[in-house]
């Protein structure tokens, strides 16, 4: 299979997992760049063009709370898991673990 098609399949595989990763990494307040760095340090490479709009979408869905804060002469928008987001994360994490153990037996 050529690289282009493989990358497309990888992208599909990652799409849902990224939401789980972002929700999981937002248990403490994070602004865009700090969240990206946190994910990269954890081994999840995600480009800024994907992550920043994704955080906004999750906030619009009520899964993340957001707040503008001023520090060091700059303003940043901080995101943190909302109450609904915490419940969703818990459910999605359970689903992920189930799926992961099932996949282990298949793969």
């Amino acid at each position: 299979m050529d690289e282009k098609r493989l990358n497309k399949l990888r992208l599909e595989l990652r799409r849902g997992v990224l939401i789980l990763a972002v929700l999981g990494a937002s248990k403490t307040p994070q602004y865009g760049y700090s969240l990206r760095k946190h994910l990269i340090d954890s081994g999840i490479d995600i480009d800024e063009g994907t992550l920043y709009p994704l955080i906004r979408r999750l906030a619009e869905q009520g899964l993340l709370d957001s707040e503008w804060k001023h520090a060091e002469g700059r303003e940043r928008r901080y995101y943190q898991l909302s109450e609904v987001g915490s419940q969703v994360l818990e459910q999605l994490s359970a689903d992920w673990r189930n799926m992961n153990s099932s996949l282990h037996t298949i793969l």
Partner: peptide, 16 residues
Amino acid sequence: DIIRELRANLLDEIEA
């Protein structure tokens, strides 16, 4: 709102 946030994100990237 989007431009405000995008500016903050870009400045963070440049700062890093």
